[in-house]
Amino acid sequence: MRAVSIIQGSRKGSGVNVTPMIDVVMCLIVFYLMVGQLAIEKRAQISIPETTTGIDPNDTVDPIVIGIGEDGTIHLDNDTIDPARLKGELQGLVSRSPGAPVRVRADERAGFGDVRPVLDTLEAIGVTSVEFVTLKPMGGG
């Protein structure tokens, strides 16, 4: 408890203590900077093509996302996966989330020969349709 003389009036430093607020704001800024940086790094691995048409995601179930990099590397849930293990992993995911949309994030520089084995695997485990993730044109859509 601070003792303040009535005669002396207000003392220096009175008013709103902004230190905790600055702390919180700084934490928020650092958090957003880090998340933004991580998101940019993750997206930079795969350059998806831009299309003039498409369907906006409206997911009630979390989609199964398969990434295919420029060099043909396959990513499942952001982890690189050995193609030999792809069928087993996908089977597990599809059986755990029946009805979940299967979304393919294929790099626009990847060859179709890198994508076809993934589509064949999906077809082999009973998936009948896929969704290719693309970018909306800037300022449109």
Partner: peptide, 21 residues
Amino acid sequence: FFMGSATIAGHEWFLGASIED
């Protein structure tokens, strides 16, 4: 600024295709 950046980065949609043989 950060909300705007997040919105621009999230401009993704998809094309549906059948893969049934």
